[in-house]
């Protein structure tokens, strides 16, 4: 089965992950800009990071037949330095012009501070101005419900196209308001701290599969890219068809990411050939 991994922090992973993902059917990954584990101090550090994910990482993925796309953003955890944020944002348009950059992400909230909200608003405004897609991170654990509500409030005060915005890391307590407001949502599968493969399938069954993207994130922390395949197995094990699985795990990423014409992988349909002997 062909799979698209729509949220994957490739630079934190080994080539062996690419190889194993390719062997399991992954045809494309999309890498949002992420936190480095420490707060970066210089705009140039971000610029080089964006070069790494927009220029170098596609070549590494290509060795395994995987298409690599990316997003640019200042991470919410680094939004407490507004001067740095503004300076980095100034460079976004030059990356929007690159052939594998899909938009702005992951922006969003961490502790939902005033600076974080202003940074989120600046990111979204810039993306909308340049016709870019947006990937929004929502906080984890105890901060999730409040932070997601705040994200929705910030977006509600702006002129945005919900079809072009993906709110990620939703869970059972946050999915409904995001879908009701017309946004795409993402389930992020982690071994412990976020959604699990089984709970993701529960939500797919409860809320339908229309505007949902499933990913395993996979960064430098405790994470596993193959929680995505585990989710596919769970989905199929419950009796959902191969086509339904392809719709969720391949075609939905095509539909959302394909709003940016640079993402040119098309949705696929399974066809059974009836061959008759002559």
């Amino acid at each position: 089965m062909q799979i698209i991994q729509p949220h994957y922090h490739a630079i934190a992973r080994t080539a062996q992950d690419y190889e194993r993902m390719a062997m399991s059917g992954v045809v494309a990954v999309a890498e949002p800009a992420f936190w480095a584990g420490f707060d970066r101090l210089y705009p140039e550090t971000f610029i080089d990071y964006f070069r790494q994910i927009s220029e170098f990482e596609p070549t590494r993925a290509a060795q395994y037949g995987i298409r690599h796309f990316c997003w640019v953003a200042v991470n919410p955890k680094e939004a407490e330095n507004p001067t740095l944020t503004r300076e980095v944002l100034r460079h976004f348009p030059e990356f929007f012009a690159k052939p594998t950059v899909l938009g702005v992400g992951e922006t969003g909230l961490h502790k939902s501070t005033k600076n974080e909200c202003e940074s989120l608003e600046a990111h979204v405004e810039l993306a909308m101005k340049h016709g870019q897609l947006v990937l929004i991170h929502t906080p984890h654990l105890a901060d999730k419900a409040h932070g997601t509500k705040k994200v929705l409030e910030v977006l509600a005060g702006m002129k945005v196209d919900p079809e072009r915005i993906w709110i990620d890391h939703v869970e059972e307590q946050t999915i409904r308001p995001c879908l009701d407001a017309g946004y795409w949502v993402g389930f992020t599968l982690y071994p412990i701290t976020k959604c699990s493969p089984k709970r993701a399938v529960d939500m797919l069954e409860k809320y339908g599969t229309g505007k949902i993207l499933v990913n395993s994130s996979a960064d430098w922390g405790p994470s596993d890219p193959f929680t995505l395949q585990e989710c596919i197995l769970e989905f199929r094990r419950r009796g959902h068809s191969l086509q339904e699985a392809i719709d969720v795990f391949h075609n939905n990423p095509c539909r959302f990411l394909g709003q940016n014409p640079k993402f040119d992988i098309q949705p696929i349909r399974v066809e059974t050939l009836v061959e008759t002997s002559k």
């Binding site: 654990l141 059972e172 412990i192 701290t193 699990s196 089984k198 709970r199």
Partner: peptide
């Protein structure tokens, strides 16, 4: 966090 995860799985 591990216990939280396991309890959420039971709730689900």
């Amino acid at each position: 966090l591990e216990a939280r995860h396991q309890l959420l799985e039971i709730a689900a």
